[in-house]
Amino acid sequence: MKPLDILTAPGIGLPAANVDTDQLIPARFMKEPRSVGYGQFLLFDVRRDAQGELDADFALNKPGAERAEVLVSRRNFGAGSSREAAVYALVDGGFRCVIAPSFGDIFASNAVNNGLLPAVVEEDDAERLLAVLADVQDIKIDLVEQRLRVAEVEVGFSINPVWRTKLLNGWDDIDMTRQHQGEIDAFATRYAERFPWARAPGAELIGKG
């Protein structure tokens, strides 16, 4: 994963609360392999009108929005389903950071696992950012200092410190965990002795379905 420390890139506002993962990528696209590029499915239904045409007023359909790498939105962004495809849609669509007053837990952790920064700002600050980002504008995000700036608006943001470290270094969990293999094996042995009933006794008795 590519490390992320300071990013200066075009940003766009999506002024809506509860942008859930069903909106970010409708379920019907999730049977596609990742190789088709999930960016084309990002907010697929929400950005279209009843006739299925792109809605020119929708934030992400505005001129220049296709260049955006940073998205600012309202509270509870990414709530709902655990589908990592919602993050794939953003990442494949060119986004490297989403800024909102709160995120769905699973979405945020999926984001970090794909190098996408979920930056938490105060509700008022999100509104100030949205006001200047009615049109696409460059936004500077400093993950080291945890501050971001667009035009004359400068605000701090927060992020789980572990996630911050992971993003700064571009670390991958599986590599990290495999350093603890000895500990895991020792734990598994102790655990099996202490909780012998926990090992799914039927597993060997019943054939494969």
Binding site: S82, R83, E84, A85, V87, I106, S109, N110, N113, N114, D173, I174, T177, R178, H180, I184, A188
Partner: peptide, 14 residues
């Protein structure tokens, strides 16, 4: 959990 975590659990059971 998300897909990256599913892969992690499959690979490590943790």
């Amino acid at each position: 959990i998300g897909a990256s975590e599913v892969a992690h659990v499959l690979a490590t059971q943790t």
